[in-house]
Design a protein around this nucleic acid. Structure first.
Lengths: 207, 207
DNA sequence: GTCTATACACTGATAGAC
DNA sequence: GTCTATCAGTGTATAGAC
């Protein structure tokens, strides 16, 4: 696909990414991945031994592209309100570039929660107890200063994530039920959403 | 499973529901469904001809259990703020009783968006242009009366849905990343969420 | 209606030539 | 490293006896 696919290994991984994210682990076919990579089925097994190993590589890449960014963006030296703006802007932009990944991650983890355990251990960026603590401290200070309403740090973070991610993963249902199955209309709705979400959250938070 | 499974057809449908919702269309096996129903593989085809037909029945049941309720609950004779309380309370309760259905619907529709078209035509409860119009009128009036902030009706509805549904569909990720993989802690978080969501939305809305 | 047996296509994976 | 050929297993679906 892209010009930088020098070696076969990358060609396979890119093809696998496409097929797995579209069809899921159980729906994907090694045959289709091989075709899309322009190589033979046997080569898949030469490079990745089994379907499961290939899937795990794809899943890990998708996961570490989307999830650790939450910590990155929240852990900056900013006020709460600045963090919200920064996070919503950048995360919605990130999701626009990778619209299939959140649904892929959510679905595969629901089918097979244990794959998360290995990844969390490998990916140090995900271990983020401090993220919550820092956020809690910040909220506590702003509450004392009468700037914002009291709220549990995890709840706030999950609310923000929900407002950013849900419209992307539930796109087909929402398009069908609330936008008379008009993809253009839903696209327009999504493009206007950044400011709306920021406003909604800040209104909920500010005193 | 339940005592009312008089006929084989229902036994199959209940078993199919379990397996399809857990494994998805492509991950489910007719063999497993037959075993779970306590009957033979051949009988599945006697009653439902193909795997796809059986799946469609299961999907339609799940869909019409969860989606048309949105209209039902919003279309009552209540003020906006009353509707929010009513909706959040009842929808979160509904999701607690059927925690796998939202993820199931979202995933299958992402893989195969066309199945929604047939259902919307069959299920008159989903055709709800008026729902949005009524909500728009209500918001307009409350805005004029200086009760609430201006907001697009679809955006408000999607925000409410996001805050209710996302924590349920993203449970494994959130448990792993934000709750140190402690299911009990996440369960507790969810059980306290009703009031939190209602408060969050109303704060965002009220002037 | 329910069962057993079986057809038959497909899937993931390997062997072995080049 | 890459290919062709092929295997063993599994999956949906049907035929036919009871």
């Amino acid at each position: 696909m892209t010009e930088k696919e020098v070696n076969t290994e990358d060609k396979i991984l890119n093809a696998a990414k496409e097929v797995f994210q579209k069809k899921g682990m159980t729906g994907a076919r090694m045959h289709e991945i091989a075709d899309k990579a322009g190589i033979n089925k046997a080569l898949l097994h030469y490079y990745y031994r089994t379907k499961e190993r290939l899937f795990e590589k794809v899943f890990e890449n998708a996961f570490s592209l989307i999830i650790p960014r939450v910590k990155e963006m929240i852990a900056s030296e900013k006020s709460i309100l600045e963090k919200i703006d920064f996070f919503v802007d950048n995360y919605i932009e990130l999701l626009k570039q990778h619209p299939y990944i959140p649904g892929f991650i959510i679905n595969e983890l629901n089918r097979n929660p244990h794959i998360l355990i290995d990844i969390i251990e490998k990916n140090t960026l995900v271990k983020q107890e401090h993220l919550i603590e820092v956020l809690e401290k910040q909220i506590e200070n702003d509450v004392k200063a009468n700037k914002i309403r009291a709220i549990d740090a995890r709840s706030l973070l999950i609310n923000i994530l929900a407002l950013c991610v849900f419209p992307v993963v539930a796109r087909p249902v929402l398009t069908g039920v609330l936008f008379e199955n008009d993809p253009k209309a839903y696209e327009k709705f999504l493009s206007q959403r950044k400011d709306l979400v920021k406003e909604f959250i800040k209104n909920a938070l500010l005193l």
